[in-house]
């Protein structure tokens, strides 16, 4: 199971790896808006070129970046066919039984698939070039304004960082419990739905008991050392944004503006 995790963040020294986590998340949101706003051929050309440029700058192996897209090929074909065959029943190119393929449907199907593929590539590039700890720190900074409505942002960040640290430990423990239950005769691979559903019980209850035992021990240790809540903790000084971060932000905003002007 750890192999699944290992495929996510790839250590590197590309320009994208060196950008600030906060900037990367903001740029991702701007670029998602750019992709979703694409309607004409020229705006699609801008979106696709921007995504290709980002993949090149990330210096990630194309097989890694396109991996999540490849795994969803059946989903993309289904979405395209559903739109192409059922979207416009009034002006079909040809009608047979319940199927009404139309030009508008093909365009709509193509547009939906391209949007999802581009968003998927963008989010994959973010997670492959940003470590989970960096993502947490960036999220903590970005959600700081929520403090104004009473959200304890430091506690939220602390909870997320502890959750990230728990993942490898719980994965190992789950694997051990799974092996132990298979040795006792549990059938996780059965083809019968009933057997498959019942195989969940001997796995889930021990996982929860062991995870909550760890939570109990950690909270006792934290309280014994005087930890009350994250507000009273000191923090390392956050590095200010560099010129390359500002340039990346400006390029993303400029692309969005060009897209907006093309739509008018």
């Amino acid at each position: 199971m750890n192999k699944l995790l290992a495929g996510r963040y790839l250590v590197g020294n590309s320009l994208l790896h060196r950008l600030d986590g906060r900037v990367k998340i903001i740029c991702l949101l701007i670029l998602i808006a750019l992709v979703i706003g694409s309607r004409s051929v020229s705006s699609y050309a801008i979106s696709v070129s921007a995504v290709c440029m980002i993949v090149l700058l990330s210096k990630l192996p194309p097989a890694y970046v396109l991996g999540p897209v490849g795994r969803l090929w059946l989903f993309f074909i289904t979405i395209f066919l559903m739109n192409a065959l059922f979207f416009d029943t009034l002006n079909p190119l040809y009608s047979w039984w319940i199927f009404h393929p139309s030009v508008a449907g093909i365009k709509q199907g193509f547009s939906v698939v391209v949007h999802v593929v581009l968003v998927l590539i963008l989010s994959s590039v973010l997670t492959m070039t940003t470590s989970p700890t960096e993502v947490t720190t960036a999220l903590e900074s970005l959600i700081k304004p929520l403090k104004l409505i009473g959200v304890p942002t430091e506690d939220v960040a602390m909870i997320i960082s502890i959750a990230i640290q728990f993942i490898p430990t719980l994965l190992e423990e789950t694997e051990a419990i799974k092996m132990a239950q298979i040795a006792r005769g549990a059938r996780f691979e059965s083809k019968k739905l009933k057997e498959r559903a019942f195989s969940v019980f001997p796995l889930v209850i021990p996982i929860f008991l062991s995870a909550f035992k760890r939570a109990d021990e950690l909270s006792l240790a934290m309280e014994a050392r005087g930890y009350r809540n994250a507000k009273k903790r000191t923090k390392r000084k956050k590095e200010p944004l560099s010129s390359k971060d500002y340039i990346a932000l400006c390029i993303c905003v400029a692309l969005c503006l060009v897209q907006f002007l093309l739509l008018r």
């Binding site: 199971m1 699944l4 506690d155 602390m158 909870i159 997320i160 502890i162 959750a163 990230i164 728990f166 993942i167 719980l170 994965l171 789950t174 799974k178 796995l203 889930v204 996982i207 929860f208 995870a211 909550f212 760890r214 939570a215 109990d216 950690l218 909270s219 934290m222 309280e223 930890y227 009350r228 809540n229």
Partner: peptide, 21 residues
């Protein structure tokens, strides 16, 4: 409050681990 926070962290971690299991 600390124990509630840690239980929440463990639950979030289980949201990643259980689907993988």
């Amino acid at each position: 409050y600390v124990k509630l926070s840690i239980i929440t962290a463990v639950s979030i971690a289980l949201c990643v681990v259980l689907p993988m299991a």
